[in-house]
Design a protein around this nucleic acid. Structure first.
Length: 390
DNA sequence: TCTGGGGTCCTAGGACCC
DNA sequence: TCTGGGGTCCTAGGACCC
């Protein structure tokens, strides 16, 4: 135990960042101090709560619920549209600041990261975390929670303890007192389904899980049973990864403003999803050899269908052909609520192989893809349309 | 429940091989 | 082929995370 891990988590990230951005642009109210949420456009059926203010939380509003239901709980709730560019900007600013403190930093999501220090370097971790927290507040304008322990799991659990704007610890010696009394669904990786199953086994708290017979958990839940048992006992050997791992899937999906019932309409949407994923694929200098289409029906049933390719590709046209074919094979002619395209089995090797064997036609397609990519990079996504796209 | 979008990982079942 | 067992690959679906 010679290391100290911090988990840093921005409080209501999207809402805080929207608030700071508005204040910087001269707004006279701070949405953090009124009942407010960040949420999508209800008329295009993206109306769920992505983040909430503390006063909104007091009305019982929770992340993920519909705006309709949020408004029922608090009729004069302020609803703000998300702005992902803004969020990326503040996220980057925070990560850059935190990189000053240690090279061993892992960004876990847009608003969370882990920092690792050696114990000998850090004699007073809590005091140090307080300094970082205050600096973020002063220089960047938003608050964070910092959790401290000897491993990532405990640091993450610690940062959830007491919000917002707090520093908390869960050292191994504090697990019993601080973590075991919590409801089992508070444990990282225990979601709604697992909670229900665990409750049926009379496991209600993290402590109940920690003291349960691990081999019975393994019988019932396989490797997942052992994982959550270890977590409940504060066991986690994963490393803080300073370099990010290779991306494994590139996907894009969209909930449609109105259900689609015609193949033609579906094809237009699919093509724009393909353009998005294919451009991201080429930007990462990779090829894919597995393509999948997913469909959500108006009844909320999900289907997916995938196909492995003989040769890896990064061509918009080849991906689009496969996607069409997959869609035709999958669609049960029901009204469609959501369409998605995802590319997987990504490889760099395929990228080089491809250029050796591709035909004249494929060479032409590649030239077209590259030309469109560079125009869009310069002037934005909407300046140019392919023939056949919407 | 008037239920987003982008990811990761795991499991089960079937095909196919020796 | 009244029929085993182990390994690998592929597909579909689902749980979980932010």
């Amino acid at each position: 135990m010679d290391k100290i891990i911090f988990h840093i988590d921005v409080n209501s990230a999207f809402l805080s960042w929207s608030a700071v951005d508005a204040l910087n642009k001269g707004a006279d109210i701070d949405i953090r101090n009124i009942p407010s949420v960040i949420g999508g456009d209800e008329s295009s059926r993206r109306g769920v709560v992505l983040a909430k203010s503390v006063p909104a939380k007091a009305y019982g509003i929770i992340t993920g619920e519909s705006l309709f239901s949020a408004r029922r709980k608090c009729p004069n709730i302020e609803i703000i549209s998300p702005c992902f560019h803004t969020y990326e900007k503040y996220s980057r600013a925070m990560m850059e600041m935190l990189s000053e403190y240690t090279p061993t930093i892992e960004q876990y999501s847009i608003d969370e990261c882990f920092l690792q220090f050696s114990k000998s370097f850090l004699s007073e971790p809590v005091k140090f975390a307080e300094e970082i927290k205050e600096r973020i507040k002063k220089e960047l304008g938003f608050t964070v929670n910092i959790g401290i322990s000897n491993n990532k799991l405990l640091a993450k659990m610690a940062s959830e303890l007491n919000k917002p704007d707090k520093v908390n610890t869960i050292y191994p010696s504090e697990i019993k007192e601080k973590m075991w009394p919590l409801q089992v669904e508070e444990l990282f990786m225990v979601g709604k389904k697992a909670k229900e199953k665990l409750n049926k086994m009379y496991i209600y708290t993290i402590g109940d899980l920690a003291n349960y017979n691990v081999s019975l958990l393994k019988d019932k839940f396989k490797s997942y049973g052992e994982l959550i048992w270890q977590y409940s006992n504060g066991i986690d050997h994963s490393e803080v990864a300073a370099t990010e791992g290779d991306i494994k899937v590139i996907s894009n999906s969209t909930t449609l403003a109105a259900d689609i019932i015609e193949k033609n309409q579906a094809n237009k949407v699919l093509f724009s999803l393909v353009e998005n994923v294919a451009a991201r694929l080429r930007k990462s200098n990779k090829c894919c050899s597995c393509i999948a289409v997913s469909i959500r029906s108006s009844e909320f049933k999900n289907y997916s269908h995938q196909k492995k390719l003989m040769n890896p590709t990064d061509s918009t046209e080849r991906i689009a052909e496969t996607v069409q074919q997959l869609f035709d094979e999958t669609w049960k002619r029901e009204p469609i609520r959501l369409l998605g395209v995802s590319l997987s089995h990504l490889s760099e090797e395929g990228y080089y192989q491809l250029s050796l064997f591709e035909s004249g036609k494929e060479n032409k397609n590649r030239a077209l893809d590259n030309a469109i990519d560079s125009i869009r990079n310069k002037y934005g996504d909407n300046v140019i349309k392919r023939f056949g796209s919407k």
